[in-house]
């Protein structure tokens, strides 16, 4: 599924990541990398550690062992603020929108880091505040157009149906103008049309903005169709890594998904 995009160098390299919660080993010695502009899928059965992996990448969890190299900088762990500044965007498995706010405000919040004026200037709507707000608004409107959610921009997100909420959450992550976008089950619980829409948006984001995408998804059809490379986790360990075709034929992957007679 290469549409002429140029897949570049490795921008994110995870080396020997281990993460424990007390005695529970969530991730054990996992290494894989992500190349610029590619769509990288993480798959695996429930509880394999996929979401933990994303949480390590954007600094929600801090692994006990391992190194993370992002854009050439080597570190032991990330922190969320730094990850956001470095251009890592994220959506969540269970929608984590700001329920009391409108779609527009949710997306505007995604651009909060771009706003430089302080709260006093904002209180007086003074100096750069108005200009900044208008600049961010027009950027956000671009994303609203892109995701085709113009009609609901002023609706509180709590009132929207599930599929649209997922789309708004993608919008909020896009509003950050991420260079690396982490999507945690962007298509969970959607019907076929909604999944098709979401696939189209993901591919468009990747194609038009050149955003590198790491996604977790359970729908194998989708994963095999849109991703460039797939890493497979099971019980916190990496069991396979490669192109969709390589992974599909891997005996361990088949065993992990179908079970194996002992």
């Amino acid at each position: 599924m290469s549409n002429g995009r140029h897949i570049g160098d490795v921008i994110l390299d995870l080396q020997n990541i281990s993460l424990r919660f007390g005695g529970v080993k969530a991730l054990t010695d996992i290494s894989f990398n992500v190349r610029e502009h590619e769509i990288r899928a993480i798959i695996g059965p429930n509880g394999a550690g996929k979401s933990s992996m994303l949480n390590v990448i954007n600094g929600v969890y801090h692994p006990q062992e391992g190194t993370i190299v992002f854009h050439g900088r080597k570190r032991h762990d990330m922190n969320t603020h730094e990850a956001a500044l470095q251009g890592i965007g994220r959506t969540f498995q269970n929608i984590a929108l700001f329920k009391g706010m409108s779609v527009l405000d949710n997306l505007m919040t995604g651009r909060n880091l771009k706003i430089k004026s302080n709260f006093l200037q904002q209180a007086f709507y003074w100096g750069p505040t108005r200009r900044e707000e208008l600049e961010q608004r027009s950027k956000v409107e671009g994303i609203i157009d892109f995701l085709e959610i113009e009609h609901i921009r002023k609706t509180p997100v709590g009132r929207l149906p599930y599929g649209l909420q997922k789309r708004v959450e993608l919008g909020r992550a896009l509003a950050m103008e991420p260079t690396l976008l982490l999507l945690d089950e962007p298509m969970a619980g959607m019907n076929v049309e909604e999944k098709q829409d979401m696939c189209r948006f993901i591919l468009d984001v990747n194609d038009q903005f050149g955003t590198t995408i790491v996604l977790i998804e359970h729908d194998m059809g989708v994963v095999m169709d849109i991703s460039d490379r797939v890493v497979v986790l099971d019980y916190g360990k990496k069991i396979a890594d490669g192109t969709p075709d390589e992974v599909r034929g891997n005996q361990e992957v088949i065993d992990a998904y179908l079970g194996v007679a002992h």
């Binding site: 954007n58 929600v60 969320t80 603020h81 990850a83 956001a84 500044l85 994220r90 969540f92 984590a96 929108l97 700001f98 329920k99 009391g100 706010m101 405000d105 505007m108 919040t109 995604g110 909060n112 880091l113 706003i115 004026s117 709260f119 904002q122 209180a123 007086f124 709507y125 505040t129 900044e132 707000e133 909020r172 950050m176």
Partner: peptide, 28 residues
């Protein structure tokens, strides 16, 4: 002044923390 604060970035940050603090953190 309060109205201005809550309709600009400061207010959005407050509401974001109120509604979903993990997501707010991830936004930066």
């Amino acid at each position: 002044l309060a109205k201005n604060m809550v309709r600009s970035a400061t207010g959005r940050a407050w509401m974001a923390v109120r509604d979903m603090d993990v997501a707010a953190e991830v936004i930066g």
